[in-house]
Nucleic acid binder design. Structure first.
Lengths: 182, 182
DNA sequence: TTATTGTATTCAAAAACTTGAATACAATAA
DNA sequence: TTATTGTATTCAAGTTTTTGAATACAATAA
């Protein structure tokens, strides 16, 4: 699993609190590439700390629990490096909408069409959202260093993914429309 | 989770043994949309049978365990129907290669380039594989009934997904090449 | 001023998934 | 003839993920 390595990768860029990491998952990188719940993030950070891959500096906050700012350790960096230099396998798509296609004949085409239209809209919004993440990078494309170029390319993958969904929805809606008419 | 519903969807098309279902996951639908191990499939079928969503007919086989042919029950069909008529959320991508982008600056660009080239090749092969699954449908596109059209569209999603990966790899390789030269 | 949203962390149970192994025979390829 | 691949199922342990809840204060909007 790569939750460990994803968190280490975040921390390799800059120290972050658990809350910040969870936010990255919810809104930044995660919104197009990886999802993890807050609980998962906090649990993983605790484990990583126990194993020596990260450390934290506790920032006392009057009247509430300390805020913990986590940083990656040399050991953690090494682990990340080891993982990075191994080949990785493509992830399986696990998409409910795909399952629907297997059994779509059980419901009316109206239901299928409505669901695809709903999805199309969601992905249109995602394209907007992810493009916003990319703005900072795509504006200075010619002067990006490798670190930022990689980030840009990851986000580009997210944009293309979402755009691809929209395109498929269009293809599907058209094909279903034609077949229903026939 | 939709493993349950994916299996029910398979069985809504035709009765299958656990082995057959596992094979679908490994080679057919699953190879582009959903992965599940054999053990997972057998465990799920046992559970589904206990809950009354599927039944099986045991085919005695001399000298070894019975082969069980599972079919969906009315109850199972109803459950599948209920699930189908609910809106579903887009799946999160959980892609190791995306994480690499977050931390790619820690390794040499050679490593990144080699990994992307490797991935490109894998996806080129997947395009071939998934297109083969589609052959039967794409040849009679004008005369498909809705059931087969849906299957075709699901496979099309798989093809587009794999093609999109190839296209992204090309974009990434070009951009990295340019930046390294600079 | 009250409600909502955002910041920040923790606990616990249940469900799902992965990994590794064992059994057993048939058919096919080397 | 021997090895490999394919058919067919089951068990068990361990890890990961999901789901749901609880706590607590700050800032902002209605």
């Amino acid at each position: 699993m790569a939750l460990k390595h994803t968190i280490l990768a975040f921390l390799s860029r800059q120290p972050l609190s658990g809350y910040d990491v969870a936010k990255e998952f919810a809104e930044g990188f995660g919104s197009c590439f990886w999802k993890a719940s807050q609980q998962q993030v906090y649990a993983e950070l605790t484990k990583l700390e126990q194993q020596g891959s990260v450390t934290y500096e506790a920032i006392p906050q009057p009247g509430r629990l300390d805020k913990k700012i986590y940083s990656i350790t040399d050991q953690g960096q090494q682990e990340l490096l080891d993982w990075l230099t191994q080949p990785c396998e493509p992830a399986a798509i696990r998409e409910d909408l795909g399952v629907m296609g297997l059994a779509g004949h059980l419901v009316s085409s109206q239901v299928v069409i409505r669901e695809i239209e709903r999805r199309r809209q969601l992905h249109v919004e995602m394209v907007q959202h992810v493009k916003k993440l990319d703005e900072h990078f795509s504006q200075h494309l010619d002067s990006l260093d490798l670190k930022d170029l990689y980030m840009h390319l990851v986000i580009r993958r997210g944009i293309r993914y979402q755009e691809e969904w929209v395109a498929w929805c269009d293809e599907a809606l058209q094909a279903i429309g034609q077949t229903v008419k026939r």
